[in-house]
Structures are given as structure tokens and as C-alpha cells.
Design a protein around this nucleic acid. Structure first.
Lengths: 196, 196, 196, 196
DNA sequence: TATGAATGAGCCTTCATTCAT
DNA sequence: TATGAATGAAGGCTCATTCAT
């Protein structure tokens, strides 16, 4: 949104990246209510610099979300190249869960089906679209391979993954519990035991 | 916490109840960041009264959570009397999901396996224990009846239900989507295709 | 606006008065851009107290204006009792000028004929009405006595007085200059050279 | 202030003019509290360029004032050539009022007799002197022609005009009211009804 | 006990000014 | 010289908490 006219000065781009990284870390640790001041401090810039890049706090929050969505979409595209369609799909959604689950109480900032669309920045909508497309591709391939229930759609997968992330978070650091819970949830995605 | 010494005057008990009800409503609508002042107003008491009953805001939040846990446990105990063990179990967890999913962004206040235990009030721990016990009874009965996977434990069910609530919330007002998603997740709890 | 239900506690009323006095002093010295913090300090209260009484800065500004209008109206009513109608009128508008002229750049906060009425608080409108009425009475009596041009109306007098205040302010501390200037302006209000 | 050493490059002079024009427009619309950034934007230059020409915001404000004074003086000199001395004088001060009154809340930036002289830039003082001289010439000629009271001096006229501008502004968009009010005020400048 | 006014730390945001590019 | 990013001191406002009534 800021770099339309000319490509943005090198130092500005560096600062923007530092701020985004700091914001991701701080929001992850304390939720989106964390103070902008703390983010600036962590990024090593003055508070004014944060507001120059993100004129309103909400813009920063959404930029972080968009960034994460874009990273997930990227990973999803990469997964499309793997040989085993089923393995690719399940590995990818497990990756999504892992990413989201560590982001304590921040996954809530993710756009939800029922959210006021006018409040969501384009960058986030773009990220969602990218991710949906990547998931769609993986899903279709896995369904063709018979590794996933044929009647599933992308929104359903998105909801299940979001829920799984919350469930994983609920488990806390107990890895064993987490693994079993995710196993149970993902089992629901598998085709019913194919009869002979 | 307040009623140890003497039984608490009748009007005081009434106020406490009004405050809890107001807090539940307000937190549900706006999340735990809602101001204490607003809760007092809705309860029809002065702000000082709220702080007399709950000396710190966190205490109020946890009291609301404890209250909800206790209500769920109560419902769970009631469900134990129903004839069909499987139906009783699934109806109950669906009820839990419905309760939690409507409480926008408030389910996050639920205690989590990995949470710092010293930060959780006794009332909440008590509620958790009550609920765990109720769930345990329903689960055992359902497992005996072959309606639920035999290897499931209470913590796993708790995690799955929490995740399912988040998934339902993610679906927004789209009831059809929500139903399908919950169907998928709960399918994971069922025993694998029963052989002949 | 705050004292509707019950009469407002004694200490609260005291603080409100202290704040208004401090605000008048500070605004007078530095204009309405002066910081609320400074007013709080001068009033000897915490910043939160100022915002409890005047939830938005603009409310404080207007309250001060309203207060001054009410005081002027009061003085106007008192002047109505004086024996010489012409003297009463001229003395009163001179008083208005003196009041307004010392309030450095703050007279600008006075409502103006062309101001957006929805932005003006009721208290100010009430003050204006009160003042207009008092001026109207003095004016009519002076006109009947032949001391003021018969074709003058209240809005015209108001505009002339406002302008005279600005002119007086322009003169700075030079009392002689100020007196001559006001003499010139007020001369315009007198009936034209009385015919034989 | 900037052009002493070398004559200033052509583009620099152009920028200075653009900035002054933009500042006049913006200050007129929003008062001197308008942000320097907005002025830069409107002028089509970067913020740094504004501060190169006017190292402090106050310098920009005063430059605009000086500019306006110089323009008024220019108009005054032009008026000196008109045939009717009285008409020339009254038309000119009406022009001054019109200029000042439309500059909402900005006329306050005009230097005042009682202002701290060290805070006023030379350019403004120069403008004031120029304007005073022009007014003085018009005034003297009009007095000789018997169109203006003989005892009036330039500072008095200046004060009256300033006040008239404020009065006009007070009238808002009501042109009829404004005309009557200015008529009243200017009447005070006329010689008393000349006896036979 | 209840009331609600007072407190003050902290938050988001703006903007004059500086400085690296 | 021009550019525009960075700085950081305020400023307005909120809200959990305390305390006099």
C-alpha cells in the first residue's frame, strides 16, 4: 500500500520488515492488545516510524496476519510438488496447525467466514485467496488419490484446521496429547473405511 | 472466596449474581477487554460494588468462566440419565460446542492444559474438575456402549470439543457449513468402521 | 448534563468549579489549544478528573464559554435597573468588550452566526439566548430614550461588540488608543446628529 | 530571509512561491494549526523543502502574513490614484475587511500593538510599515477632503479595520447583516454631521 | 456495604523537526 | 537542493483501581 509510486527506499523497506517481525513476535506472545510502543522498541525504531508504515494499529495487525497467510500459501504451493498426494495434504495442514497453534490467541485475528468484510484489508483478503487456492489444489489432488473424503470443500478444511489449531493450543506443551488429538480430528477427514 | 467468614448478606448475594450475569453478557458480546464500568452499569450497581466482590478484574473473568463450567457440568450430570449412552454423549458435547462457540473470543479464557496453574483460581479448577468428571462418566458409558472410540480419554475429548467450538465460530453464521464441519470433527470420535 | 439525577456530590461540584476556573485562566492565557493536562495541574486535580467532568476537550471549552456568556447575561440583567437607559446600555457593552478583549484569542470560541449549530452545546446556546435577551432589553430601553439608533437590532449589536473587542485587543496595553478606538466604534451606534 | 547571499536559484524561488501559496490556502481553510505536511503536499514538494525555506513553522506563518500585508499595501498604493479621496479611502478599508474576514481565524496572526516585537519577523514589520504608509496617505487625503474625521490617526484606523473584520466574520454568511454592521462601524469614522 | 468521584499509568496518534540518501 | 524516512515529545482519552462519603 505504501510502495506504489517508487519502490520504497532501502532503509525504509528494512525498517518495515523489522517492524513486521517484531510485531509478529510481540503479538504472538501477548496477543493483539500488546502496545505499539513495545513493538517499536523491539524493532529498534521510534514509535513514529511504526505509525509511518502502519498509520493505524489495526493496519499493523492485519499486515502481520497477511504476512502469515502469504507464508502459509507459499508453503502450500511448495507442497504441491511432492509425490504422495495424501501425504502432501496432511503434512501441509499439520504445518498450518503448528504455525497457528503457537501464535497464542492470535489466530483469532484470522478472518472468519462471518467477519465484516469491509474491515478486512485487501492484503489479508489477498492472503486468504492465495491460501485458499493452495489448499484447494492440495485437496483436489488428495481427493483424486482417495486420501481424503470426496465431499470435503475448502471452507470445511479451513474450519477444521482452525479448530485443530485451537485444540492443539489447548493441549499445551504435552506433545503426546497433542498428537493423539490431532490424529482424532484428522481422522475425520479420511474417507470412511473403504469396504472391499 | 468472599463467603467464607459469614454467609454473606442477602442483598450482597443478589448483587454478586447480578454482576456475574452482566459480566457474562458483556464479555460474551465484547470479549474480556470490555470495561468493568460497563459491566457495573449493566448490572445496575456502582463500580465500587463490582470491585468489592471481585477485587481484581481477572477475578471477575475467572468467576464467569467458573460459572459457565459449573453450568456445563450440571448439564453433563443431567445427561447421564438419558437412555441412549451414545446419543447422550454426542448431544452433550454438541451442547458444549454451542455454548462456547457463541461466546465470541471468550472461550480463550478457558483454562488450558499448559496454563500457569497458579494463575487459575480455585473456583475455575473446581469447575474444570466437575466438568471433567461429568464428561468422564458420559464418555465411559458411551464407550461401553460402543458409540465412542475405546481409546479416548477425557483430556482428548476436552481438546477436541474446544477445537470444535473454535471451528464452529470460524464458520460464522453459516449454519449449513457449521453442521458439516462439526460432523467431520465428531466423526473422528466414532469407533472405526465396526467389523461384523 | 451531569447533575440530572441527584444534585452531584459536594466535592464533585467543588472540583468541577475548580476545573472551570483553571480552564478559563489557561485558555485565556494560551488559547483553546492549551493542553488539558495543564488545566488539570492548575486546578489541582488529576487528568482523569477533568475527563470525568468533561468527557471531551471540546466540552470543556464550551463549558467555559457558556459560563462566561451566563456571567455577561447576569451583568446585563443587573444593568437593566440603572436609571439612565443610555448610560446603562453603553456601560454594559463596554463591559462586554472589556471581558472579551482580555480573553486572548479566545473570543473566537464564541458562537458565530455562521457556525454549525449541531456542534454547539446546549449550554452555550442557552447562554447566547440569555445574553441576547438581556441585550435586547437594554437596547430597547436605550432606543426609546433616544440614546441609540432606532434601526439597530440585537444581532447587529452583538457583531459590533465582538468586533470592538477584537479592536481593543489589537490596541494592546495602550489605554489611550483603546479608548479612542472604542469611542469611534460606539459613535456609530448613536443616533445621527439630532435634528433641530 | 533566505535570498541575501546569492539571488536564489530559479527553481528554489518557484518552490518558495508554491509553498507560500499553499500555506495561505491551507491556513485560510484550517487556521494556523494546520499541519506543515499538508502544506507541503498541497504545494507539491516534500516536507523537507518546506523546512529548508522556512526553518521553523512560525516563519512560514509570518511569511504568509507578510505577504498578505504587502498585497494590501500594494492595493492601497493603487487606490491613491483614484479621483474621489473619500471613496478611495472607504473602498480600500472595505477591501481590507473583506480580505481579513474571509481568512477564517487567521487574522489573529496579524501583529498587534501589544505584541512582543522580538517575536515578529522583519518581513512582517516591513509589511506593516508599508501598509501603514499606504493607509496614511489615503487617510490624509480623505481627511483633507472632509470625508473622514480629522482627528483620526493611522493606528486608530488599523484597529477599527481589524475589529470590523472580526465583526464581519461574526456575521457569518448573512450578507445583509454584514453590510449593516460594517455601515454602522464605518459611520463612526465619518465627520460629525457638518453644521452649516 | 454501596456509591461514584478521583487517581494516574498507559495507550494510540499527531506533528514539528532532523538527517541520511 | 530536494526528498521523504526517522525521531520523539506531547496530546487526548481510557480504564483498572482506590478511597472519601
Amino acid at each position: 500500500m505504501e510502495q506504489r509510486d517508487r519502490p520504497m527506499r532501502a532503509d525504509a523497506r528494512r525498517n518495515r520488515a523489522k517492524i513486521l517481525a517484531a510485531a509478529e513476535a510481540v503479538f504472538t506472545a501477548k496477543g493483539p492488545a500488546a502496545s505499539t510502543e513495545e513493538i517499536a522498541e523491539r524493532a529498534g525504531v521510534a514509535i513514529g516510524t511504526v505509525f509511518r508504515h502502519f498509520p493505524v494499529k489495526e493496519a499493523l495487525v492485519q499486515a502481520v496476519v497477511a504476512e502469515r497467510l502469504r507464508r502459509l500459501a507459499e508453503a502450500g504451493r511448495a507442497a504441491a510438488g511432492e509425490p504422495d498426494p495424501g501425504a502432501a495434504f496432511y503434512a501441509f495442514i499439520a504445518h498450518c496447525v503448528g504455525e497457528a497453534a503457537t501464535k497464542h490467541s492470535f489466530a483469532d485475528a484470522l478472518p472468519t467466514a462471518g467477519m465484516d468484510p469491509s474491515a478486512v484489508h485487501d492484503a489479508v483478503l489477498g492472503g486468504v485467496a492465495e491460501l485458499d487456492e493452495a489448499v484447494g489444489a492440495l485437496l483436489a489432488r488428495a481427493q483424486r488419490a482417495g486420501a481424503v473424503r470426496a465431499d470435503l470443500t475448502v471452507p470445511e478444511v479451513a474450519a477444521v484446521v482452525t479448530g485443530a489449531a485451537r485444540a492443539a493450543e489447548f493441549c499445551g506443551p504435552d506433545g503426546r496429547l497433542r498428537a493423539r488429538v490431532l490424529g482424532v480430528i484428522f481422522d475425520g477427514l479420511r474417507p470412511l473405511a473403504s469396504a472391499p
